[in-house]
Amino acid sequence: MTVSLDIESITAHYGHTEVLKDLSLSVKAGELVSLLGSSGCGKTTTLRLVAGFLPPTKGRIKLGDKDITRLPAHTRNIGLVFQNYALFPHLSVLENVAFGLKQRGVGSDKRRKRAGDMLDRVGLSPYAERLPAALSGGQKQRVALARALVIEPPLLMFDEPLSNLDAKLRIDMRVEIRKLQRANGTTSLYVTHDQEEAFSISDRVAIMNAGKIMQLDHPEVLYQRPANAFVARFVGFENLVPMKVSERDGDRVTAEAEGGGSMSLSQDSLGPIPDEFVLAARADGLSVRRAGEGLPVTLGLRTYLGRAYQYQCQSTAGELVANGPLSDPMEQGGAAVLAPHFEQCCILPVE
């Protein structure tokens, strides 16, 4: 049975330190949501609360219609996949996968059949009688995934499951995890600090900071339309320029940056533009030009990217990073202007 997960106004402490404050999150039935953020942001604490390893100070956790906030961890029937695999070294691969079924009282023949079927699904049937020590890292992670799925949990949770694998194997395994999760339709909560991993595997992603969710949305929306400066910097918007509107003419808005320089912006492309705002742009979103309308800058270090030159630029709005064409390289110390490419920019509120 596929169910939803609802975390409602959860606050949690480690000793006297508050690590989560009034955090709320809903994961739809069959959905995979990732918690993404740097170390200490609260993502693993959230996982521990849902698993029952840590009691909340206040708030409620529901799995479907069932309140599990105060239930012991072993009664929650949640599938867990850890960073360090957590396999029993003295048990065979088949016995590791069947362990959860044994704990639930499933008979020997039936649990061996179910465990064998699950090993077949993750491509490990030939390794059923091996001990974990004889497996590679990727194979161990497949065993851990099979063990979590075989109990048919209403909720599957992953805690940095691919951190110990090399880059190529991480890509292969995240594809396998996504395929199995979709095939089973299991509601899933996934913790990672890797943005590419989270964006590639998730239906939605919650970007966290200091125990709070800064934005929860589809990966495409987070990447193209961050809601605030923290999320913008997190997803790669190197340039945040405070601006004020000086003139409006239909769709077109003329805005001035602090210290000088103006830009003509399109509301059709960027959406409604308030009188004061922050223009967020990646390096590809600001084009370096010798003259014309734009932010005046002094060019700093130039680096070759293959498809463009990238410049460190000094402006009255601070240091900015922008790209220029390979056909017209400019020298360090020279004057230039930066003009926006609207599809690579977004408008943020002043904080």
Score class of each variant (00 low, 15 high):
residue 347 I to D: 02
residue 137 G to H: 00
residue 334 G to E: 15
residue 101 L to V: 01
residue 171 I to F: 05
residue 338 L to I: 06
residue 8 E to W: 02
residue 273 I to T: 08
residue 230 F to Q: 00
residue 328 D to G: 14
residue 21 K to A: 13
residue 68 I to A: 06
residue 242 P to M: 07
residue 114 R to D: 14
residue 204 R to Q: 04
residue 33 V to N: 00
residue 343 E to R: 15
residue 39 S to L: 13
residue 80 L to A: 09
residue 9 S to N: 13
residue 24 S to Q: 06
residue 94 L to P: 01
residue 231 V to N: 00
residue 136 S to Q: 10
residue 184 N to V: 05
residue 339 A to S: 15
residue 6 D to M: 03
residue 206 A to M: 05
residue 200 S to M: 09
residue 80 L to T: 13
residue 50 V to F: 08
residue 50 V to E: 09
residue 173 M to Y: 09
residue 321 V to S: 12
residue 181 Q to S: 12
residue 94 L to M: 06
residue 47 L to M: 10
residue 188 S to I: 01
residue 302 R to S: 06
residue 27 V to F: 11
residue 115 A to L: 12
residue 30 G to N: 07
residue 237 F to M: 06
residue 224 Q to A: 13
residue 215 Q to I: 05
residue 226 P to Q: 03
residue 263 M to W: 12
residue 7 I to W: 08
residue 51 A to N: 13
residue 10 I to G: 03
residue 189 L to K: 01
residue 311 Y to W: 01
residue 170 R to L: 03
residue 191 V to S: 06
residue 270 L to C: 11
residue 86 A to T: 13
residue 99 F to E: 11
residue 283 A to S: 14
residue 230 F to H: 00
residue 205 V to A: 03
residue 306 G to T: 05
residue 56 P to V: 12
residue 226 P to V: 03
residue 314 Q to P: 03
residue 246 S to I: 15
residue 274 P to V: 13
residue 195 Q to H: 09
residue 142 R to F: 05
residue 289 R to Q: 10
residue 95 E to T: 09
residue 276 E to M: 00
residue 219 P to L: 08
residue 265 L to G: 02
residue 8 E to D: 12
residue 257 A to V: 07
residue 126 P to N: 15
residue 146 A to H: 10
residue 268 D to E: 11
residue 129 E to W: 08
residue 230 F to C: 00
residue 225 R to D: 09
residue 131 L to P: 01
residue 109 D to L: 05
residue 73 A to P: 03
residue 19 V to I: 04
residue 3 V to M: 07
residue 146 A to E: 07
residue 315 S to P: 02
residue 239 N to K: 13
residue 173 M to C: 08
residue 291 A to H: 14
residue 149 L to W: 05
residue 48 R to N: 12
residue 125 S to P: 07
residue 318 G to F: 01
residue 279 L to T: 00
residue 205 V to Q: 03
residue 124 L to C: 15
residue 222 L to N: 04
residue 251 D to A: 14
residue 23 L to T: 09
residue 265 L to S: 03
residue 297 V to A: 01
residue 311 Y to T: 00
residue 34 S to N: 12
residue 55 P to H: 12
residue 125 S to K: 11
residue 158 F to K: 01
residue 138 G to Q: 03
residue 273 I to N: 01
residue 87 L to E: 00
residue 317 A to C: 14
residue 84 N to Y: 07
residue 176 E to V: 12
residue 12 A to V: 07
residue 104 R to L: 15
residue 231 V to D: 00
residue 95 E to Y: 02
residue 323 N to H: 15
residue 295 L to C: 13
residue 294 G to T: 02
residue 224 Q to S: 14
residue 40 G to S: 13
residue 278 V to Q: 09
residue 130 R to V: 13
residue 25 L to R: 14
residue 342 F to Q: 06
residue 263 M to L: 15
residue 179 K to H: 09
residue 49 L to P: 03
